[in-house]
Design a protein around this nucleic acid. Structure first.
Lengths: 235, 235
DNA sequence: GCCGGAATTTGATCCGGATCAATCGAGGCC
DNA sequence: GGCCTCGATTGATCCGGATCAAATTCCGGC
C-alpha cells in the first residue's frame, strides 16, 4: 500500500535535485516519471537486490538507507557502499546483466524502481537521460576507484574521518542536519566498508572523541571539528 | 605517420572481438569505424590523458600498454589500472566531464581515439553502441569495486597472485602467450596498483619462485603452476 | 665489452592494526 | 522495571607488511 503523504511524481519529489532527474528538463522528468515504479516500504534487513540475480531494473532509495554488500569466497562479508535517499543502486549490473552484490535495507526503506527495458527505450529518445545515466556510472566508477586508492594509502583514522566527512556532506545535500546524525549502520558494517576491523573503528572513534573532534553516543554522532577530521586526509 | 601494415578500420582490426565493437553488428561496427581516429605512435612515458583535463574523447589502446595513475595530495603515486590492447581508458571522465587521472604509456603505444561529440551522436542512433558503452562502464565499475574489496581482504601474496592470473587471462584473450610474458610495468607500479610496497612485491614473487610456481627473470615471468597461484585467492 | 644509474633483490627492524579476550552499555521484550 | 541479547568499548598480545639499509642485477649508452 502506498502512503498517501508521499509525492506522486519525480517532478514534485523532494529528492529531484539529487536523484536521477537532477539534470533533466521538465519535459524529460515528466516522461521519466511515467516509467518509475514505487515500491512498498521494506523492513530493516530486507534484501532489495540479490547477488547473481538478473538485472531487471535500477533502484533508487527514496527514504531510509541501505548497504551494497556481499560475501567473499571465504565467507567474510564486505560492504561496497552505503546508499542514502536519492542514490541509485545496482549500476554494476550493466557489466553483464547480473547483479554482483546484495542491496540490504539498514532501516525501514522506501524506494523507486525503473525497469531496465523502459529505461533503455527512454534513453533512445531522451539525450538528457542518456547523459545522466553515463554521468551516474562515471561517478560510481570514480568513487570506487577513489575508495580503492584510499583503502591502500590512508591509515585507519584517515579513512574513518573521510567516511564521516563524506557522510556529512551527503546529508547536507539532502537538507538533513550534517553535523549531528544517527549512523544507520553498525560499527561492523563501517569496518567492512573501510577495510578495517570493528575494534579499530571503535578505537578510532574513541580517539576522535578524546581529541574533542566528535561526540559519540552509541550510533549518534556529532561532528564538533570537521576541519580537524578533514585534515587527517591531507597527510 | 601511420604504419602501413596496420588495419584501417575496426571491422578488420585484430582486436575487434575484444574492443568496443565486440558486441556490435557489422553495420554498427562500420559506422563506428568512421568516427574512430588513429593516433600516432607514442613513446614510453608519454602522457595520453592528463588529470584535470576536459574529457574530449575515449581512448583505446591498440598496441603496447599503459597505466592509469595519479598522485595523492601527499605526492604519493597510485596506479588505478593497467591497460592492454583493446581496453578503453578515460571512462571515469563521464562523472563530470573531466579526467581524474593520467594515462601514461608503459612502452611504445599505439591508440585509437573516439571524440566524445561523435560518440554521443552515434549513441543516439545505434542501440548496440549504447548498450556497449553501458557495458564497458559497468565492467569498469564492477572491476574497481572488486579490486577494492580485494585490497582490504586479501593478503599481499594473494593480491599478487590475483594480479598475475588476471594478467594471464587478459593476455590469453588477446591471443598472446598467457604463460610466458614480459611485464611492461615496474615492480613499483605493481606495488602501487596493489596497495603494497615494491619490496613486498619482490619478496612475494621470490616466494612464488621458491615454491616452484613461477620463473622470474627480471621482467619476464613464466607461470609454472597457475592453479597454485589461483588457490591463494580461495583462502 | 664496459660503465653508470636505475631497478630489483635481500636483510634487519619496527609499527599499525588484527586478533583474542573480557567488560560494558543499549535497546527490545516480557 | 528487570532481564537478556547483541553491539560497542577497552585491554593485551601478535604478526604481516612497511620502513630503513645494503648488495646485486639489469639495461642503455658509449
Amino acid at each position: 500500500m502506498e502512503s498517501t503523504s508521499t509525492e506522486l511524481s519525480c517532478g514534485s519529489c523532494a529528492l529531484s535535485r539529487i536523484c536521477l532527474p537532477a539534470h533533466l528538463s521538465a519535459r524529460e522528468t515528466r516522461i521519466l516519471a511515467g516509467a518509475v515504479e514505487r515500491g512498498r516500504e521494506l523492513q530493516s534487513g530486507a534484501r532489495l537486490i540479490r547477488a547473481g540475480a538478473r538485472m531487471d531494473a535500477l533502484y533508487v532509495v527514496r527514504s531510509g538507507s541501505a548497504k551494497s554488500c556481499g560475501v567473499m569466497n571465504d565467507g567474510e562479508e564486505y560492504v561496497r557502499a552505503f546508499n542514502l535517499p536519492g542514490e541509485v543502486a545496482g549500476l554494476e549490473g550493466f557489466a553483464d546483466g547480473h547483479h554482483t552484490c546484495d542491496l540490504v535495507a539498514l532501516e525501514p526503506l522506501r524506494y523507486c524502481r525503473i525497469p531496465l527495458g523502459r529505461l533503455e527505450r527512454l534513453m533512445e529518445t531522451l539525450p538528457g537521460l542518456r547523459r545522466e545515466v553515463l554521468r551516474l556510472l562515471g561517478q560510481s566508477l570514480e568513487e570506487a576507484q577513489r575508495m580503492r586508492t584510499e583503502v591502500s594509502m590512508v591509515d585507519a583514522r584517515g579513512r574513518l574521518a573521510s567516511f564521516l566527512v563524506d557522510l556529512s556532506r551527503r546529508l547536507e545535500r539532502r537538507n538533513l542536519p550534517p553535523m549531528h546524525f544517527r549512523l544507520s549502520m553498525s560499527r561492523r558494517d563501517i569496518a567492512r566498508h573501510l577495510g578495517l576491523t570493528l575494534e579499530t573503528v571503535s578505537r578510532s572513534l574513541g580517539a576522535f572523541r578524546s581529541a574533542g573532534w566528535v561526540e559519540v553516543r552509541a550510533r549518534y554522532i556529532k561532528l564538533l571539528q570537521p576541519k580537524a577530521l578533514a585534515a587527517l586526509l591531507a597527510h
